[in-house]
Amino acid sequence: MASIDIQHPHTLPPAHARQAVQDVADKLVDRFGMECRWNGDILDFTRTGVDGRIALLPGQLHVTAQLGFLLGAMKGPIEAEIRRILDERF
């Protein structure tokens, strides 16, 4: 199983950062059929082949994900897309 672990700094106020994470989650639901739910300041997301979370920390986001066998083969492009979205939003 391949894993992704990204720490990304941000300077947004907590409410704005949470809304930006929610916007990303909404796109995950629309595009990939992910199931997302908040648990405090952590957004858990899952679907077949992916299990992950986005932890909203002061001044930083921490994205972790476990990729199943098929998606594990695409880890590089998936991680690059996550980094691109984080750079764009935060």
Rank of each mutant, 00 (worst) to 15 (best):
D30Y: 11
A15Q: 13
R53N: 09
F90L: 03
D30T: 14
P14I: 06
R37P: 10
R47K: 14
L28C: 03
A2D: 10
A20Y: 01
G72E: 03
T48H: 13
D44Q: 14
A20E: 09
T64A: 12
I54K: 00
D30V: 11
L28I: 02
T46I: 05
L43S: 09
T11E: 12
D87N: 11
D23T: 10
G59P: 06
L70V: 08
H62F: 09
E35D: 14
D41G: 04
H8D: 02
L70N: 07
Q22N: 10
L12A: 05
V50C: 07
P14M: 06
A15H: 13
P77F: 00
W38L: 09
A2N: 08
L61M: 11
F69R: 08
E88R: 11
P14T: 06
H62I: 15
V21W: 00
I82Y: 02
M34F: 14
G72N: 05
G59I: 15
Q60R: 15
G76T: 11
R31N: 13
F32I: 09
Q7W: 08
L61P: 00
V24A: 13
K27F: 09
G76I: 06
V50H: 01
D26C: 10
G40W: 00
F32Y: 15
I42H: 09
Q7E: 14
T48A: 15
I78S: 02
T46F: 05
A73L: 15
D51S: 09
H8F: 01
R89T: 08
A25H: 03
H62S: 08
F69I: 14
L71M: 08
I6Y: 03
R84C: 01
K75R: 13
R89Y: 01
W38K: 13
Q7D: 11
A17S: 08
R53K: 15
D26A: 15
R53G: 12
L70R: 05
K27A: 12
V29Y: 04
I6V: 12
G59Y: 07
R47F: 03
E35Q: 12
T48Q: 15
I78M: 00
P14F: 03
A65K: 07
D87T: 07
P13V: 08
C36S: 07
K27S: 12
F90S: 00
Q7T: 15
V63R: 01
A65I: 05
I42S: 11
L12H: 04
T46S: 08
I54G: 04
A73R: 14
T48K: 14
Q19S: 13
I42D: 12
A17E: 04
P58R: 04
I42L: 07
A17D: 02
F45S: 05
R18A: 11
W38Y: 08
M74Q: 13
D44N: 11
I82N: 03
R84L: 02
V50A: 05
F69K: 10
